[in-house]
Design a protein around this nucleic acid. Structure first.
Lengths: 111, 111
DNA sequence: CTTATTAATCGTATATTTGCGATATAAGAT
DNA sequence: ATCTTATATCGCAAATATACGATTAATAAG
Protein backbone atom coordinates (compact mmCIF):
# COMPACT_ATOMS: atom_id res chain seq x y z
CA UNK A 1 0.00 0.00 0.00
CA UNK A 2 1.30 3.36 -0.91
CA UNK A 3 -0.35 5.23 1.90
CA UNK A 4 1.87 7.82 3.43
CA UNK A 5 2.80 7.13 6.97
CA UNK A 6 3.51 10.64 8.05
CA UNK A 7 1.01 10.43 10.86
CA UNK A 8 3.11 7.82 12.60
CA UNK A 9 5.80 10.33 13.44
CA UNK A 10 5.82 12.90 16.23
CA UNK A 11 3.86 16.10 15.82
CA UNK A 12 7.04 18.14 15.87
CA UNK A 13 8.59 16.08 13.14
CA UNK A 14 5.45 16.44 11.07
CA UNK A 15 5.27 20.20 11.63
CA UNK A 16 8.88 20.73 10.71
CA UNK A 17 8.51 18.53 7.64
CA UNK A 18 5.41 20.48 6.58
CA UNK A 19 7.28 23.74 6.97
CA UNK A 20 10.20 22.40 4.96
CA UNK A 21 7.81 21.16 2.32
CA UNK A 22 6.32 24.62 1.95
CA UNK A 23 9.84 25.95 1.33
CA UNK A 24 10.82 23.11 -0.99
CA UNK A 25 10.12 24.86 -4.28
CA UNK A 26 12.20 27.72 -5.65
CA UNK A 27 9.08 29.57 -6.77
CA UNK A 28 7.81 29.66 -3.21
CA UNK A 29 11.13 30.85 -1.84
CA UNK A 30 11.11 33.53 -4.50
CA UNK A 31 7.59 34.56 -3.51
CA UNK A 32 8.56 34.82 0.14
CA UNK A 33 11.47 37.07 -0.78
CA UNK A 34 9.20 39.36 -2.77
CA UNK A 35 6.68 39.57 0.03
CA UNK A 36 9.44 40.41 2.48
CA UNK A 37 10.91 43.13 0.30
CA UNK A 38 7.63 44.90 -0.21
CA UNK A 39 5.89 43.86 2.96
CA UNK A 40 2.85 43.25 0.81
CA UNK A 41 2.22 42.15 -2.72
CA UNK A 42 -0.63 41.58 -5.06
CA UNK A 43 -0.73 38.39 -7.02
CA UNK A 44 -0.26 40.15 -10.33
CA UNK A 45 3.14 41.54 -9.39
CA UNK A 46 4.30 38.07 -8.45
CA UNK A 47 2.99 36.61 -11.69
CA UNK A 48 4.91 39.25 -13.65
CA UNK A 49 8.17 38.37 -11.95
CA UNK A 50 7.92 34.60 -12.06
CA UNK A 51 8.25 32.38 -15.14
CA UNK A 52 4.95 30.73 -14.33
CA UNK A 53 1.32 31.01 -15.35
CA UNK A 54 -1.13 32.91 -13.17
CA UNK A 55 -2.95 29.78 -12.11
CA UNK A 56 0.29 28.13 -11.07
CA UNK A 57 1.33 31.13 -8.99
CA UNK A 58 -2.07 31.12 -7.36
CA UNK A 59 -1.54 27.50 -6.41
CA UNK A 60 1.84 28.23 -4.86
CA UNK A 61 0.31 31.09 -2.90
CA UNK A 62 -2.37 28.75 -1.68
CA UNK A 63 0.21 26.27 -0.46
CA UNK A 64 2.13 28.95 1.41
CA UNK A 65 -1.14 30.08 2.92
CA UNK A 66 -2.11 26.55 3.93
CA UNK A 67 1.27 26.13 5.56
CA UNK A 68 0.53 29.29 7.52
CA UNK A 69 3.58 31.16 6.20
CA UNK A 70 1.62 33.93 4.53
CA UNK A 71 -1.77 35.49 4.88
CA UNK A 72 -3.82 37.05 2.18
CA UNK A 73 -6.99 38.94 1.65
CA UNK A 74 -8.78 39.23 -1.62
CA UNK A 75 -11.24 41.95 -2.48
CA UNK A 76 -12.63 41.12 -5.84
CA UNK A 77 -10.10 41.98 -8.48
CA UNK A 78 -7.34 42.74 -6.04
CA UNK A 79 -5.37 40.69 -3.57
CA UNK A 80 -2.97 41.44 -0.78
CA UNK A 81 -0.48 38.87 0.39
CA UNK A 82 1.81 39.27 3.36
CA UNK A 83 4.27 37.18 5.27
CA UNK A 84 2.89 35.76 8.47
CA UNK A 85 5.84 36.80 10.60
CA UNK A 86 4.67 35.08 13.73
CA UNK A 87 4.40 31.65 12.17
CA UNK A 88 7.53 32.23 10.19
CA UNK A 89 9.63 33.00 13.22
CA UNK A 90 8.13 30.14 15.15
CA UNK A 91 9.28 27.73 12.49
CA UNK A 92 12.60 29.49 12.17
CA UNK A 93 13.29 29.01 15.85
CA UNK A 94 12.12 25.42 15.75
CA UNK A 95 14.49 24.82 12.90
CA UNK A 96 17.30 26.45 14.79
CA UNK A 97 16.50 24.35 17.82
CA UNK A 98 16.79 21.26 15.70
CA UNK A 99 20.06 22.45 14.20
CA UNK A 100 21.45 23.34 17.60
CA UNK A 101 20.40 20.04 19.06
CA UNK A 102 22.26 18.38 16.27
CA UNK A 103 25.30 20.60 16.64
CA UNK A 104 25.61 19.98 20.38
CA UNK A 105 26.79 16.49 19.62
CA UNK A 106 30.15 15.45 18.39
CA UNK A 107 31.01 17.29 15.23
CA UNK A 108 33.39 14.88 13.66
CA UNK A 109 31.82 12.22 11.54
CA UNK A 110 33.05 8.68 11.55
CA UNK A 111 32.54 8.12 7.85
CA UNK B 1 3.06 20.80 -20.21
CA UNK B 2 3.98 19.60 -16.83
CA UNK B 3 7.70 20.18 -17.05
CA UNK B 4 9.14 21.58 -13.90
CA UNK B 5 10.59 25.02 -14.22
CA UNK B 6 12.90 24.89 -11.27
CA UNK B 7 15.89 25.66 -13.44
CA UNK B 8 14.50 29.09 -14.21
CA UNK B 9 15.12 30.33 -10.69
CA UNK B 10 18.39 31.47 -9.16
CA UNK B 11 20.90 28.90 -8.02
CA UNK B 12 20.50 29.97 -4.42
CA UNK B 13 16.77 29.54 -4.58
CA UNK B 14 17.20 26.12 -6.10
CA UNK B 15 19.77 25.07 -3.51
CA UNK B 16 17.65 26.21 -0.62
CA UNK B 17 14.62 24.50 -2.10
CA UNK B 18 16.57 21.28 -2.55
CA UNK B 19 17.72 21.43 1.05
CA UNK B 20 14.17 22.04 2.25
CA UNK B 21 12.96 19.18 0.12
CA UNK B 22 15.41 16.82 1.77
CA UNK B 23 13.97 17.87 5.13
CA UNK B 24 10.36 17.71 3.97
CA UNK B 25 9.53 14.26 5.25
CA UNK B 26 9.18 13.38 8.94
CA UNK B 27 11.05 10.14 8.43
CA UNK B 28 14.08 12.01 7.20
CA UNK B 29 13.96 14.47 10.07
CA UNK B 30 13.71 11.52 12.41
CA UNK B 31 16.71 9.89 10.75
CA UNK B 32 18.77 13.06 11.11
CA UNK B 33 17.93 13.20 14.80
CA UNK B 34 19.05 9.61 15.28
CA UNK B 35 22.28 10.21 13.44
CA UNK B 36 22.96 13.28 15.53
CA UNK B 37 22.29 11.51 18.81
CA UNK B 38 24.61 8.62 18.05
CA UNK B 39 26.96 10.42 15.69
CA UNK B 40 26.78 7.29 13.60
CA UNK B 41 24.17 4.71 12.85
CA UNK B 42 23.75 1.54 10.90
CA UNK B 43 20.73 1.20 8.70
CA UNK B 44 19.31 -1.64 10.77
CA UNK B 45 18.97 0.51 13.87
CA UNK B 46 17.06 3.11 11.90
CA UNK B 47 14.79 0.49 10.39
CA UNK B 48 13.99 -0.83 13.88
CA UNK B 49 12.94 2.62 15.09
CA UNK B 50 10.91 3.73 12.11
CA UNK B 51 7.48 2.43 11.07
CA UNK B 52 8.78 1.76 7.58
CA UNK B 53 10.08 -1.16 5.59
CA UNK B 54 13.80 -1.64 5.15
CA UNK B 55 13.71 -0.76 1.48
CA UNK B 56 11.85 2.46 2.21
CA UNK B 57 14.35 3.52 4.84
CA UNK B 58 17.14 2.77 2.42
CA UNK B 59 15.52 5.11 -0.06
CA UNK B 60 15.22 7.92 2.47
CA UNK B 61 18.87 7.47 3.36
CA UNK B 62 19.73 7.68 -0.30
CA UNK B 63 17.85 10.95 -0.64
CA UNK B 64 19.58 12.47 2.35
CA UNK B 65 22.86 11.31 0.88
CA UNK B 66 22.06 12.80 -2.53
CA UNK B 67 21.17 16.07 -0.86
CA UNK B 68 24.60 15.95 0.77
CA UNK B 69 23.23 16.03 4.30
CA UNK B 70 24.67 12.70 5.33
CA UNK B 71 27.48 10.48 4.24
CA UNK B 72 27.60 6.74 4.44
CA UNK B 73 29.91 3.88 3.88
CA UNK B 74 28.83 0.33 3.35
CA UNK B 75 31.02 -2.69 3.90
CA UNK B 76 29.01 -5.64 2.78
CA UNK B 77 26.46 -6.50 5.42
CA UNK B 78 27.14 -3.43 7.50
CA UNK B 79 26.64 0.28 6.96
CA UNK B 80 27.68 3.46 8.70
CA UNK B 81 25.77 6.65 8.22
CA UNK B 82 26.78 10.02 9.60
CA UNK B 83 25.65 13.58 9.38
CA UNK B 84 27.67 15.68 7.00
CA UNK B 85 28.16 18.55 9.40
CA UNK B 86 29.85 20.82 6.96
CA UNK B 87 27.04 20.77 4.41
CA UNK B 88 24.49 20.86 7.17
CA UNK B 89 25.83 24.02 8.70
CA UNK B 90 26.26 25.64 5.35
CA UNK B 91 22.58 25.18 4.63
CA UNK B 92 21.68 26.17 8.16
CA UNK B 93 23.48 29.48 7.78
CA UNK B 94 21.98 30.06 4.34
CA UNK B 95 18.59 29.48 5.82
CA UNK B 96 19.30 31.86 8.62
CA UNK B 97 20.51 34.44 6.15
CA UNK B 98 17.24 34.15 4.33
CA UNK B 99 15.30 34.43 7.56
CA UNK B 100 17.30 37.42 8.66
CA UNK B 101 16.92 39.12 5.33
CA UNK B 102 13.23 38.67 5.71
CA UNK B 103 13.18 39.87 9.28
CA UNK B 104 15.11 43.06 8.53
CA UNK B 105 12.04 44.42 6.83
CA UNK B 106 8.94 45.75 8.44
CA UNK B 107 7.48 43.16 10.75
CA UNK B 108 3.88 44.16 10.75
CA UNK B 109 1.79 42.70 8.01
CA UNK B 110 -0.83 44.70 6.19
CA UNK B 111 -3.33 41.86 5.97
C1' DC C 1 -26.55 46.76 -16.37
C1' DT C 2 -22.45 45.76 -19.05
C1' DT C 3 -17.68 45.42 -19.42
C1' DA C 4 -13.05 44.99 -17.91
C1' DT C 5 -9.82 43.33 -14.60
C1' DT C 6 -7.88 40.33 -11.27
C1' DA C 7 -7.42 36.22 -9.00
C1' DA C 8 -9.31 31.65 -7.49
C1' DT C 9 -10.79 27.24 -8.93
C1' DC C 10 -11.56 23.31 -12.08
C1' DG C 11 -10.04 19.84 -15.15
C1' DT C 12 -6.32 17.59 -17.02
C1' DA C 13 -1.68 15.82 -18.21
C1' DT C 14 2.70 14.60 -16.69
C1' DA C 15 6.34 14.02 -13.24
C1' DT C 16 7.78 12.90 -8.82
C1' DT C 17 7.37 10.88 -4.28
C1' DT C 18 6.29 7.36 -1.15
C1' DG C 19 6.04 2.75 -0.01
C1' DC C 20 6.43 -2.22 -0.31
C1' DG C 21 7.91 -6.93 -1.62
C1' DA C 22 11.19 -9.39 -4.19
C1' DT C 23 15.67 -9.77 -5.71
C1' DA C 24 20.54 -8.84 -5.97
C1' DT C 25 24.87 -7.90 -3.68
C1' DA C 26 28.58 -8.09 -0.63
C1' DA C 27 31.10 -9.64 3.13
C1' DG C 28 31.58 -12.44 7.29
C1' DA C 29 30.78 -16.97 9.45
C1' DT C 30 30.63 -21.98 9.17
C1' DA D 1 32.09 -23.40 -1.13
C1' DT D 2 27.84 -22.51 1.24
C1' DC D 3 25.01 -20.06 4.48
C1' DT D 4 23.74 -16.03 6.93
C1' DT D 5 23.07 -11.30 7.50
C1' DA D 6 22.56 -6.54 6.26
C1' DT D 7 21.72 -3.40 2.80
C1' DA D 8 20.97 -1.67 -1.84
C1' DT D 9 18.35 -1.88 -5.94
C1' DC D 10 14.45 -3.13 -9.01
C1' DG D 11 9.73 -3.15 -10.33
C1' DC D 12 5.49 -1.82 -9.31
C1' DA D 13 1.22 0.73 -7.45
C1' DA D 14 -0.84 4.59 -5.36
C1' DA D 15 -0.60 9.27 -3.87
C1' DT D 16 0.97 13.83 -4.43
C1' DA D 17 3.02 17.78 -6.78
C1' DT D 18 3.65 20.75 -10.71
C1' DA D 19 1.98 23.21 -14.46
C1' DC D 20 -1.21 24.99 -17.74
C1' DG D 21 -5.49 26.64 -20.12
C1' DA D 22 -10.26 27.46 -19.46
C1' DT D 23 -13.70 28.86 -16.53
C1' DT D 24 -15.77 31.14 -12.66
C1' DA D 25 -16.31 34.73 -9.21
C1' DA D 26 -16.09 39.16 -7.49
C1' DT D 27 -15.58 43.84 -7.68
C1' DA D 28 -14.60 48.26 -9.97
C1' DA D 29 -15.35 51.27 -13.87
C1' DG D 30 -18.10 52.79 -17.55
Amino acid sequence: MAFHKKEEFTQKEQDLAAFAKAMSHPARISILKMLAQRNECICGEIVDLLPLAQSTVSQHLKELKNAGLISGTVEGPRSCYCINWKAFEKFNSEFNTLFNNLKIKNEKACC
